[in-house]
Amino acid sequence: MYTQAMDQQPKEERERKAVRSVEEVELERRFDAKIDAGDFIEAKDWMPDHYRKTLLRQISQHAHSEIVGMLPEGNWITRAPTLKRKAILLAKVQDEGGHGLYLYAAAETLGTSRDQMIDALHSGKAKYSSIFNYPTLTWADIGTIGWLVDGAAIMNQVPICRCSYAPYARAMIRICREESFHQRQGFDALLVMMRDGTPEQRAMVQDAVNRWWWPSIMMFGPPDDQSPNSAQGMRWGIKRVSNDTLRQRFVDATVEQAKVLGVTLPDPDLKWNAEREHYDFGAIDWDEFKRVIAGEGPCNRERLATRQKAWDDGAWVRDAALAYARKQATKQEAA
């Protein structure tokens, strides 16, 4: 789901070679047959260049999202209101780091190094999920992220567990197993405040929901009719469910959850449509989405600058570790 909006393929990659060799045509035929049969593609297998590049972009951007996502949540670790909440939040952010790591590992099987991917993130070439460009202003934001953002992520991640590219599918299975507590803890944190908290706490929760609702449903990316590459992704078993379908599923599930919490979702057009058997919802501000994706959201610059700084500040540490390892290796060889 962190990748729904990002399967936009640059123009130059859409140009195909005019003439392809007999071998390549045959390899692609076998590849398509494997996909159609529901077989998995492994790292060593032949794959079309476009498949490789699309996956690399999708997986690495998913990884970047996990890493950048550590920042808005990490923002509240020192201020968590109880020791239990502090521990839960630390564990959650640590999980996200781990998820990023599994995904970088999966992406590396496609032939790019992690350093190259990080460089692409810092230079702005690679994207990450739009949602993490919003600020966490109150403790209720943390619970809301767990409820809405992780909820949306889970909805997208489950289908990717059946992705045709096996290293990505395996990483997603691992991630989904660990993800279950993320949404629950967020919802729980909000429920306690709504059910047992003070009027000030309830106001805090409602305020957070007001700010995070629309960005959350934007996470599913542009409408299907503005996502031209979805068809190819579906053909290759990379993308399993369309943006609009996932978005609708999310809205339907979340409206019910909001009732349990006792919060109002900030959409006056939200209402049950008995004919469609789904919730109708209001118009999404796609200008805001485009702005945020283009780098002009509330926190884009700060998120990237923070990651760049951590990387730059850490260079001497990484160099020292390598220097030590090489010295040890030399000593061993000499022995």
């Binding site: 071998e23 045959e26 390899l27 076998r30 790292a43 060593k44 032949w46 590396e108 099987t109 496609l110 032939g111 790019t112 190094s113």
Partner: peptide
């Protein structure tokens, strides 16, 4: 994979 169609080396990943 027949040898004719397989341009890969026998390392696991094409990792630079």
């Amino acid at each position: 994979k027949g040898m004719y169609f397989d341009p890969m080396e026998d390392k696991v990943y094409r990792h630079p």
